[in-house]
Simulated scan of single mutants.
Amino acid sequence: MTASSPEPQRLVLVDDHEMVLHGLGAMLGHFPDEVSIAGQVTTAAEALAVVVEQKPDVVLCDVRIGKESGLDLCRQITTEHPDTKVVLLTVYDDEHYLYQALRVGASGYILKRIDGQELVGHLRRVREGETVVDPALAGRVALSAARLHAGEFWSGAHLGLTQRESEVLELLVAGHSNRAVASKLVVSEDTVKSHVRGLYRKLGVADRSGAIAVALREGLFR
């Protein structure tokens, strides 16, 4: 490292699998001029503690950390420690998780199949102020954005909802029961329950009132 080179980025790695942490640590260890490991932890609570103690540049975490949410952890870190950036490193190649990650302040969303050189390159771009998206998802996101701009999407599409889930949510907002929703959409009540579970998961809520609150906050149905 030359006198003019920046200091290596200090990273905290968060994953509920010790083997993943060891593998990441070993992979990133080949790039000492670019990154250094300030901590490796397996829970959200440990991650928050090490962020307070070490004040890292970047936290790398998964969308799921055991039974905990990496998205909730991202929101808390970016809110309480704005100088620390969060990059989601995950196996979930699903746009709705990507959209949620960006909404809670993530600086990147990268799939775990990436190699060390590519990961370090993405981290370099994050340091420069960019928001990075794995190339495997970037094309789909661009297509989604184009369709949304053209008015081809339904309310809630940007949150990952399918058209049918959006229809179900609109009826929930209007105060209909699952049975009434099933009648209006001419499907079984079990099918409606399945759609409801799906939209709860995608909106990150636990119940009907939470889903309605998100719909109203986002102005999905006017």
Rank of each mutant, 00 (worst) to 15 (best):
M1P: 12
S4R: 11
S5G: 05
P8N: 03
Q9W: 10
Q9V: 04
L11M: 09
D15P: 07
D16M: 14
H17N: 12
V20P: 12
L21A: 13
H22N: 07
G23Q: 10
L24T: 13
L24W: 11
G25P: 03
A26K: 08
L28S: 11
L28V: 14
F31A: 06
I37C: 04
I37V: 13
G39E: 02
Q40K: 14
T42E: 12
T43W: 11
V51L: 04
V51F: 05
V51W: 01
V52T: 11
V52D: 13
Q54N: 01
P56W: 13
D57G: 10
L60V: 09
V63G: 05
V63H: 03
G66Y: 08
K67M: 10
E68P: 07
S69H: 07
S69C: 05
Q76W: 06
H81C: 03
H81F: 06
P82I: 01
P82K: 07
D83G: 05
V86N: 00
V86K: 02
V87A: 00
V87N: 01
L88F: 00
L89P: 01
T90E: 09
E95C: 02
E95T: 12
E95K: 06
Y97E: 06
V104G: 00
G105M: 12
Y109L: 08
R113W: 06
R113M: 07
Q117R: 12
G121A: 05
H122E: 00
R125T: 00
R127V: 01
E128Q: 15
E128V: 10
E130C: 00
P135I: 02
P135V: 02
L137C: 05
S144N: 12
A146I: 06
L148A: 12
A157Y: 13
G160M: 03
E165D: 06
S166K: 01
E167A: 15
E167K: 14
E167V: 09
E170A: 15
L171W: 02
L172A: 01
L172Y: 08
L172S: 02
V173F: 14
V173K: 06
V173L: 10
G175K: 09
G175C: 07
G175P: 12
S177T: 15
A180L: 01
L185G: 08
V186Q: 08
V187R: 08
S194Q: 09
K202E: 11
V205K: 02
R208A: 05
G210D: 04
G210M: 09
A211N: 05
A211E: 04
A213M: 07
V214T: 00
A215G: 05
E218D: 10
G219A: 10
